[in-house]
Amino acid sequence: MDLILWRHADAEDGFPDTTRKLTEKGEKHAQLVAQWLKPRLPNNLSVLVSPAKRALQTADALTSKYEIRKELAPGADVATVLAAAGWPSAKGAVIIVGHQPTLARAAAFLLSGEEADWSMKKGSIWWLSNRIRQGEKQTILRAVISPEFL
Rank of each mutant, 00 (worst) to 15 (best):
L3W: 07
L3F: 11
L3V: 13
I4N: 03
D10T: 06
A11H: 00
A11Q: 00
A11W: 00
A11T: 04
F15E: 13
F15C: 00
F15Q: 12
F15R: 10
T18G: 07
T19D: 12
R20E: 06
L22S: 09
L22E: 03
T23K: 05
T23W: 09
K25V: 03
K25G: 03
G26A: 10
E27R: 14
K28E: 04
K28M: 01
K28S: 04
A34T: 08
Q35E: 14
Q35L: 11
W36L: 06
R40E: 09
R40D: 03
R40A: 07
P42Y: 13
N44E: 15
N44G: 04
L45M: 15
L45P: 15
S46I: 12
S46A: 15
V47K: 05
V47W: 04
L48P: 03
L48I: 15
S50G: 13
A52V: 08
K53R: 13
R54D: 11
A55F: 13
Q57I: 05
T58E: 04
A59K: 08
L62T: 07
S64V: 07
K65P: 00
K65C: 11
Y66E: 10
E67W: 14
I68Y: 10
L72K: 03
L72C: 14
A73V: 14
P74C: 05
P74S: 08
G75R: 04
G75P: 07
A76P: 10
A76L: 05
V78W: 01
V78P: 01
V78G: 02
T80V: 08
V81W: 01
V81M: 10
V81H: 01
V81E: 04
A83F: 15
A84D: 14
W87H: 02
W87I: 08
W87G: 11
A90G: 12
K91Q: 15
V94G: 08
I95R: 10
G98I: 09
H99I: 08
Q100S: 06
Q100W: 09
A104Q: 02
R105S: 06
A106G: 10
A107N: 06
L110K: 00
L111R: 02
L111Y: 00
L111S: 05
E114A: 13
E115V: 08
E115P: 05
A116C: 07
A116P: 05
S119A: 14
S119D: 11
S119F: 09
K122D: 10
I125P: 00
W126L: 07
W127G: 08
L128Q: 07
S129Q: 08
R131I: 04
R131H: 00
I132N: 00
Q134E: 13
G135T: 03
E136F: 14
K137F: 13
K137C: 06
Q138W: 09
T139D: 01
I140L: 12
L141T: 00
L141H: 07
L141E: 10
L141I: 01
V144H: 14
I145H: 11
E148K: 15
L150K: 03
